[in-house]
Amino acid sequence: MSIQHFRVALIPFFAAFCLPVFAHPETLVKVKDAEDQLGARVGYIELDLNSGKILESFRPEERFPMMSTFKVLLCGAVLSRVDAGQEQLGRRIHYSQNDLVEYSPVTEKHLTDGMTVRELCSAAITMSDNTAANLLLTTIGGPKELTAFLHNMGDHVTRLDRWEPELNEAIPNDERDTTMPAAMATTLRKLLTGELLTLASRQQLIDWMEADKVAGPLLRSALPAGWFIADKSGAGERGSRGIIAALGPDGKPSRIVVIYTTGSQATMDERNRQIAEIGASLIKHW
């Protein structure tokens, strides 16, 4: 067993022997301040990774656009098919120029040779490549099948209805392509620590998230040296922004954090800054 596999296998073990965790309302004060600064709703939840206990939450059962955070769930569904012998990570998928959609920095470079399922998941999570996500959605049967996968996990809230990039439209009061912070946090925890996926697939999923290259201005910008984070960000229309993450000190994750916002007129930089400040408060009061 590799060191990384050992780390993920012992996530519940280490967490069980940690000192009790206590909620700190100071972080919620910052979440509410972010709402004021952005002029928009902000949803927040913080779960203990081992027990699933909610440590703090704000608007945990209000719907927010998922945006690209759905790509972690998508690759979880792909990995479940791999575990069941219905898919192979090494299978190569070929596609054409007509398949390319807006923001496809990886797939646009491989029109000639195609990409493997493993490479597509890596591109979808680490670079948020939209064509990679659409190609992977095709392998599982489309958005409705991802929703069905989530329902089978016990998540009857999260739903995907459309493809990239239309799913980022974020129309107010439109339930399409949305989740709730509580539902997303619980589902992410199941994917990373539950028995739904094999140990190898859980490790692969967290490795992809740990290698995320496009979430630097968010929670990662607030992390002290030595902290662990595996995350996936999302951005959408109407001032929408979000991030889902597993993080913790001492090089291992111990909490799940989900943050979503929508309806702001603020710039992307300002949305990023507010999420980073929430992260800084979380870490300060850990």
Rank of each mutant, 00 (worst) to 15 (best):
H5P: 08
L10D: 03
I11L: 08
I11K: 05
P12L: 12
F14G: 07
F14E: 01
A15N: 06
F17N: 08
F17H: 10
P20E: 12
V21F: 05
E26K: 13
V29E: 14
D33N: 15
A34K: 04
A34E: 03
A34P: 02
E35A: 07
G39V: 10
R41W: 07
V42T: 06
I45P: 00
D48W: 03
N50F: 10
I54D: 06
L55F: 10
L55I: 13
E56A: 11
E56N: 11
E56S: 11
S57E: 13
S57I: 07
S57N: 09
R59W: 04
E62I: 06
R63Y: 07
F64A: 01
F64V: 04
M66Q: 06
F70D: 01
V72I: 09
L74E: 04
L74T: 06
V82Q: 06
V82D: 05
Q86C: 11
Q86M: 11
E87W: 05
R91W: 04
Y95W: 10
D99K: 08
S104G: 06
S104D: 02
P105A: 05
K109Q: 14
H110L: 08
T112R: 14
M115N: 03
E119V: 02
L120C: 06
L120Q: 02
A123H: 03
A123E: 04
A124L: 03
I125F: 02
M127N: 08
D129R: 00
N130T: 02
T131K: 02
L136G: 02
P143S: 06
K144C: 12
K144H: 10
L146P: 00
A148E: 15
F149K: 07
L160A: 11
R162W: 02
W163G: 09
E164V: 00
E166L: 14
E169D: 13
E175F: 12
R176I: 05
T178Y: 02
M180G: 11
P181T: 05
A183D: 07
A185R: 00
L188R: 00
E195A: 06
A200I: 10
R202W: 03
Q203I: 11
Q204A: 15
Q204T: 14
D207N: 11
D207L: 12
M209N: 00
K213Q: 14
V214D: 02
V214G: 06
L218K: 02
L219P: 04
S221G: 10
A222C: 15
L223Q: 05
P224Y: 04
F228I: 08
F228H: 06
A230C: 14
A230N: 01
K232V: 00
K232M: 00
E237Q: 14
I243R: 00
I244Q: 01
A245Y: 01
G248N: 03
P249R: 09
D250C: 12
G251P: 08
K252Q: 14
V257F: 04
V257D: 00
V257T: 06
I259C: 07
Y260Q: 02
T262D: 09
M268N: 07
M268S: 07
D269Y: 12
R273S: 10
Q274A: 13
G279L: 04
S281N: 12
S281C: 12
